[in-house]
Amino acid sequence: PTIVLKVSPEELKALEKAGVEIEKIEKNEDGELYITLTPEALKKAGFE
């Protein structure tokens, strides 16, 4: 199962800087950012 999270541009930068593997980055028509994370990326980021 993949996880989709709504993030701010600042959060996205912080995640990328931390080396979190982001599978997909999407922006909706309201300009909101959503990222898709794999279970492996979540484990690496410390989420179980």
Rank of each mutant, 00 (worst) to 15 (best):
L12V: 05
E16V: 13
G46T: 02
E32R: 10
G46S: 02
E11P: 00
A41T: 04
E29G: 12
E48P: 15
T36Q: 06
E16C: 12
E11F: 15
A45Y: 08
P1R: 13
T2R: 14
P9H: 09
K43T: 08
E11L: 15
L5R: 09
K44D: 13
L37R: 00
L12T: 00
K24W: 10
L33N: 02
T2G: 08
V4K: 11
L42D: 01
L15N: 00
F47S: 05
P1H: 10
I35W: 00
D30P: 03
E16L: 14
K24Q: 08
L33Q: 03
K17V: 11
E29T: 09
E26D: 09
T38D: 05
K24L: 09
E40D: 07
P1F: 15
G31Q: 03
A14M: 14
L33R: 01
A45F: 10
K44E: 08
A18R: 15
P1N: 11
E11I: 15
I3F: 09
I3P: 01
P1W: 15
E21L: 07
P9Y: 07
K44S: 07
I25E: 02
K6M: 09
S8I: 02
E23F: 15
K17L: 11
E48I: 12
A14W: 15
K27D: 05
P9V: 08
A41G: 05
A14R: 15
K27F: 13
K17T: 10
F47E: 06
E21N: 07
E40G: 04
A18E: 06
E10I: 12
L12A: 03
L15Y: 13
K27L: 13
I25G: 01
K24Y: 08
N28M: 10
K27N: 07
F47Q: 08
A45D: 03
K43H: 09
L5G: 00
P1C: 15
L33C: 06
I35D: 00
K6T: 04
I3N: 03
P1K: 13
S8N: 07
E11K: 14
G31W: 03
K17D: 10
G19A: 05
G19F: 06
A45C: 09
E26T: 11
E29W: 11
K27G: 08
L37K: 00
K13Q: 10
P1Q: 13
A41S: 07
A41F: 03
L12D: 00
T38W: 02
T36C: 06
I35A: 04
L15T: 01
A14Q: 13
D30F: 13
E26A: 08
K44Y: 03
E32V: 12
K27A: 08
K13L: 13
E26Y: 14
E29D: 11
L15H: 01
P39N: 11
F47G: 06
L42I: 08
V20S: 02
A41W: 09
G19Y: 04
E40H: 06
V7T: 03
F47T: 06
I22Y: 09
E21M: 07
K24P: 01
E26S: 10
A45L: 12
K27M: 11
N28F: 07
A41E: 13
I35H: 00
V20D: 00
V4L: 10
L15Q: 00
E16K: 14
L37P: 00
E10R: 12
K17Y: 12
D30G: 10
G46I: 04
S8F: 03
E40P: 03
E32G: 11
K6P: 01
